[in-house]
Design a binder for these strands. Structure first.
Lengths: 208, 208
DNA sequence: ACTTTGGATACTACTATAGTTTCCTAAGAT
DNA sequence: ATCTTAGGAAACTATAGTAGTATCCAAAGT
């Protein structure tokens, strides 16, 4: 009955295994039978740790959200970075996550676990305006972003654009992956967003 | 009752729509209800054209196989190409197909439609030895491939390596996409395959 | 010996969907 | 105007897959 570290508690191990399965094969392919088998425990024990499948996935999503949020904070709070570097940092945090989030999986969640899909959307709605609002304000303060625009509105604009663009049906139409969508949207958005000075810094860090 | 061209017959339209759904969202997400709805026809009419879901998918797979095979023939029969150019051509035929074949979809097929998965494997077992056997023989004839190796064995070697590497479970372990797997495997395989002369031609066309 | 922990697995309840059928409407034919 | 037929909408059936529960049993500690 020793108090266990959070890192290697049974719960953490279960969540980590489930996360791998989920991102590798999707929602339906992650069955409780398989998960228990993979972990070398019985379903009985599995249900002893978690009340159900959606609870597990919910915690996975929340964990990812927390991680991303923390990494974002680190970038935003680093006074040594200029605007373009912070933007680079923010994109580098998000891009790997998007790369392993397939349109197929999002669609599966939307269809078979709408509550989970909704939770992801809520996380985005909460975090994107916050992060990009701060980012744009910092950009304005240092003259890299046009001072005449409203940073919060710009953040919302970005959120709504990304929400629409990463919707499964849209992705099917554009034939783009979430990651490509991010890159293209970013190029477009910044092209109209930056002052000539900010544009130069940007181009150094995002070579064509 | 005019005879319809093969291109826009109802059957071709159904297959094309089903193919898009299949590659965009996977096997389970392709339901007969949705397919009929998408096509603007009733399930009754759909089942009038095809005996069932797996028949449709089987025809899709066969069609892709035929297309690839024809493109391969065109490359192999082009006397103007040297070995490295033919290899480049063959890879360029396969790579786009692999790019849209996700590990998740393969796994889904393996689990829910083992017959289909098996059919894909059979197509590979038939075509890879044939194509690469011919390719290697041509390479030997022009001195780009070591003359002391058996081209059919090399083709089998390649087949077996690719089969193992693109198995869903392997992909989950390597964290590679099928396409990355192809590129990495190709680099490795040719590195030990070519004479110094063939190696030079190869490096011109596959810059590091 | 007694108790506890947890694995294997049978079982239940439910959902999703492949495939079938029934009914009905509308457009062309007579 | 009536008849015929093609095909859409949707109800229906049968079945497979799986979330979640319960039962049984073996091993390890007490």
């Amino acid at each position: 009955m020793l108090p266990e570290s959070a890192a290697d508690s049974p719960n953490a191990r279960i969540l980590e295994t489930a996360r791998r399965q989920l991102f590798a094969y999707g929602y339906n392919a992650l069955t409780m039978d398989d998960l228990a088998h993979e972990l070398g425990i019985s379903k009985k024990t599995l249900y002893l740790h978690f009340p159900g499948k959606d609870a597990i996935i919910g915690l996975i999503i929340e964990g990812i959200g927390r991680t991303i949020r923390a990494e974002m904070e680190a970038v935003l709070n680093d006074a040594a970075l200029n605007f373009a570097q912070k933007l680079r940092g923010v994109v580098d945090v998000v891009a790997p996550r998007l790369a392993q989030t397939s349109p197929a999986m999002l669609r599966e969640l939307q269809r078979y676990a709408p509550r989970i899909h909704q939770k992801i959307d809520e996380l985005r709605q909460k975090n994107i305006p916050y992060v990009f609002g701060r980012l744009f304000r910092a950009g304005i303060a240092e003259g890299a972003v046009r001072a005449d625009l409203d940073p919060d509105f710009a953040a919302q604009f970005w959120l709504q654009a990304m929400r629409g663009l990463t919707h499964p049906d849209t992705l099917a139409t554009t034939h783009l992956t979430p990651r490509q969508t991010l890159e293209k949207a970013l190029e477009l958005f910044t092209g109209g967003l930056l002052t000539p000075g900010g544009r130069k810094d940007y181009e150094k860090l995002f070579p064509r």
